[in-house]
Design a protein around this nucleic acid. Structure first.
Lengths: 150, 150
DNA sequence: GATACTAATTAGCCTAGCTAACTATCACCT
DNA sequence: AGGTGATAGTTAGCTAGGCTAATTAGTATC
């Protein structure tokens, strides 16, 4: 048995949260095959659909933690499939704004619905109190991630 | 504004949990560049290191939701880097068991430590009660994911 | 208006995903 | 025992997704 260093309480908690998030998403990801899209395209599209308004290619690349040329080709593919459109930015002719089409939006929302349903099913078996714990946790995590992003 | 269908409480909760997990991991993933490994290799290695004992190539492929040939090449790369070894299975000569080397283990644990530390830092600013909520949530999620995997 | 900076694309290279086809081994079964 | 079929892994060959370097076009600065 390797000697384990003593760790602060927060590290222990961080480790468990981290694992839980990984296992949760690894499980839900199995629903994505039904969309017919690859993981990178699906993820980029989701930024467009759930991220609010249209976004520049560079912002999209940053959000996906990918270089600009990679995003150019990803967007090319999505555009060829009719899921996304490019449009010129008024005021700066260098940037191209990317926006999901109605079809892209519909496809993504259906996929998201499958994931959410897969998760909602077992959630229904939890007590109201347990559900409340999860709801608070989700809010806390969003707050942490938002804070750290700054 | 599109008309929103009424949704059961669990779907609402599932949606928030899902988003929180995505945002959490998207943020923590930024630490991974320091390992020098690609995301697929890192993920496969983590199954080996944290998944307990040695694992067959097929099990590893299933865990990563990837086909066998993909995993063969991924393991080839990890083996070439000295992070993993293949060993024959006693009792069935068809299967090859994959095991992380000491170097692989060390590399992965360092990477994990970076992620965990990045998460632990802001966690320290939460109250003890908030931390307890997150700990319970992590346990509940592990339970859900384990249950649904069956 | 020359110079430097910035956004996106293009070119070209490797890795990571897939299916199909192959090899080797095992399990069965009569 | 030996044939038949199933199973584990690899190989071959394709497309998609990651990168850097170089290009193109537009903005900003001075």
């Amino acid at each position: 048995m390797p000697p384990k260093r003593a760790r602060p309480r927060e590290a222990e908690l961080a480790d468990r949260l981290h694992s839980a998030a990984i296992h949760l998403l690894r499980w839900l990801r199995r629903e994505d095959a039904a969309t017919g899209l690859s993981a990178p395209r699906l993820s980029a599209l989701s930024v467009l659909v759930f991220g609010g308004g249209p976004v520049t290619l560079g912002q999209l690349a940053a959000a996906e933690q990918v270089r600009a040329p990679t995003m150019t080709r990803l967007v090319n593919g999505l555009e060829a499939d009719g899921l996304v459109t490019r449009q010129a930015d008024p005021g700066d002719a260098r940037v191209t704004r990317i926006r999901a089409t109605a079809r892209g939006r519909a496809l993504l929302e259906a996929g998201r619905a499958r994931r959410v349903e897969a998760l909602a099913r077992p959630l229904a078996n939890l007590s109201a109190e347990e559900q409340a714990v999860l709801a608070r946790a989700a809010a806390l995590i969003e707050q942490l991630a938002a804070g750290a992003r700054r």
